[in-house]
């Protein structure tokens, strides 16, 4: 059977796993977003703590994903929860780092002008600093999302949900008739999910960034 007829025959299962994969990624990125923004907000006046936390979350990123997924088994068992947790851990760093980079990248003269005209700290944050840092912050979310889409495949090794299941099922039937088709459908579907999310981020970026920033 060729790949395309395989996909059309198993379309229902592939699309179901794809939706699962998407949900998994969105939940993890959302959690990571809350954690990252919380960390950045909490360390507004503690630059040393902030630097230490950033380097810690950066180091977490070097941990091989299979080890992190597996390590959560003794604590949370197999399945959805350890998968989401591990993906959240990975997604924190890109978001937190880009939020910090974005906020620190705001032109100091603009902040000075804002202070000089009597804007309060809150007003400066919401009217000036966040809108100006937004493209960089959004890009952090984008990097985290694309990374998590690929990493989530390994979740299937600990019985997690998502498209990784197709890859591991293909592997377990190695030598069988549809092993390659099954694994390939998983890999391609993951790439498609990543591409679609990437396009969505480009669209969000276009819609939510002030025209004044890209003229």
């Amino acid at each position: 059977m060729d790949f395309f007829s395989y996909v059309s025959q198993h379309w229902e299962r592939i699309s179901f796993l794809g939706m699962q994969h998407l949900q998994l990624v969105l939940i993890a990125v959302l959690c990571a977003g809350v954690v990252s923004l919380g960390l950045v907000a909490a360390t507004e006046r503690l630059p040393r703590v902030r630097a230490a936390l950033l380097s810690f979350t950066g180091t977490l990123l070097t941990i091989p994903s299979f080890a992190l997924f597996a390590l959560l088994i003794p604590v949370f068992g197999l399945g959805v929860l350890p998968t989401i947790l591990a993906l959240t851990v990975y997604a924190v760093f890109p978001i937190a780092r880009n939020t910090v980079t974005g906020l620190e990248g705001v032109d100091p003269s603009v902040i000075d002008a804002a202070r000089g005209m009597g804007m309060s700290a809150t007003r400066r944050l919401f009217l000036v600093r966040l809108p100006l840092a937004w493209p960089v912050i959004l890009n952090g979310f984008r990097v985290a999302t694309i990374m998590v889409v690929a990493t989530a495949a390994i979740g299937a090794a600990v019985n997690g949900p998502g498209l990784g299941e197709l890859i591991f099922r293909g592997l377990s039937r190695i030598g069988g008739a549809n092993a390659l088709n099954e694994a390939l459908s998983g890999v391609v579907a993951i790439a498609v999910v990543a591409a679609v999310l990437d396009l969505i981020f480009v669209a969000i970026g276009k819609l939510t960034t002030s025209k004044g920033l890209h003229v």
Binding site: D107, S109, V110, D112, A113, G118, V128, S210
Partner: peptide
Amino acid sequence: RRHIGYVIQQVGLMPHM
């Protein structure tokens, strides 16, 4: 500061406005 005009060399206009 709201009652004192302030002008700086780098101007500091809000680029997104």
